[in-house]
Nucleic acid binder design. Structure first.
Ligand SMILES: [Mn+2]
Ligand SMILES: [Mn+2]
Ligand SMILES: [Zn+2]
Ligand SMILES: [Zn+2]
Lengths: 138, 138
DNA sequence: TTTTTTGTTTAGATTGGCTCTAAGATAATA
DNA sequence: TATTATCTTAGAGCCAATCTAAACAAAAAA
């Protein structure tokens, strides 16, 4: 990670510890939408004393700064998205991989609802089978 | 609940116990998207010996028959929707109420993605503040 | 540089939603 | 009514996530 980026995080009010650096490096450009456990498993290689709480603390801090997003797309486990810009997702019901869909669908609610709701975001979740899993079919 | 409806559930292969009847009656026409706990709290009035496992077992059985849907819209807790027909949701970030949106937005993916994904369903989640919570603002 | 302050890391305990188990109960059926 | 398949129940157990408080370390101040 570049010195400028570290400085950038610091200016956001994040103390830069080696653990956080490792987590940030794992997340940077990662499109796998990892769970806290995925992140922990990866970082514990570098930091055998790493605690799960540190992973959660760091993710919470990053979320508050708007640097990552927390996804509730399957029950029982959060997944994290290092890309905070608005986009949508496809979830494979076989392998549970989460794919990004960068497409602006221009959804607008009918007038009646526009009065009722102040909408801040709109997220589309597609579900089905991915090409990879299709290929493995008999 | 009418005799015909009970017969209908029975034909689907569901043994109709008093506990299930109470759960079904609570769910019928319910648009609050209750959690398992909500359902349990309501039904334990009639059946003080009711077990949480029965709530989950029943919900699982109903889900398998396609009579209800399980929603993963907020972390850590499932919510259930007795309306299995495809529709979308608005979630209030203040009160966490879930509102139905019955509108066909005709979302279609660009060709590249259509090859990659076999899409079975498409669910839109709007987030923001509901009129009720807006009203309570200072 | 050294000191001080403030926020972070850690292990372990704890919580909360959910699932499993096995014994007893009961709806459906014959 | 007797049989059988399924359901209900209490309690144990599981797992993701959160909390706690002491040790620690980064950043700011001196
Ligand atoms: Mn994404
Ligand atoms: Mn609904
Ligand atoms: Zn797949
Ligand atoms: Zn609200």
């Amino acid at each position: 990670m570049t010195r400028e980026k570290i400085e950038h995080y610091r200016k956001l009010g994040l103390k830069m510890t080696p653990q956080r650096l490792a987590i940030l490096e794992y997340l940077e450009g990662n499109t796998s939408h990892p769970s806290a456990e995925d992140i922990y498993r990866h970082v514990e290689g570098k930091f055998p004393s790493m605690s799960f709480a540190t992973v959660y603390n760091t993710l919470e801090a990053l979320k508050e700064k708007g640097l990552i997003r927390e996804l509730s797309i399957e029950p029982g486990k959060k997944r994290f998205d290092p890309n905070p810009s608005p986009h949508h997702h496809f979830i494979c019901e076989r392998c549970h991989r989460v794919y990004d869909i960068f497409e602006d669908f221009q959804i607008t609610l009918p007038g009646e609802h526009q009065k009722q709701f102040e909408i801040k975001e709109c997220e589309i979740i597609f579900r089905g089978v991915c090409a990879d899993c299709k290929r493995k079919e008999v």
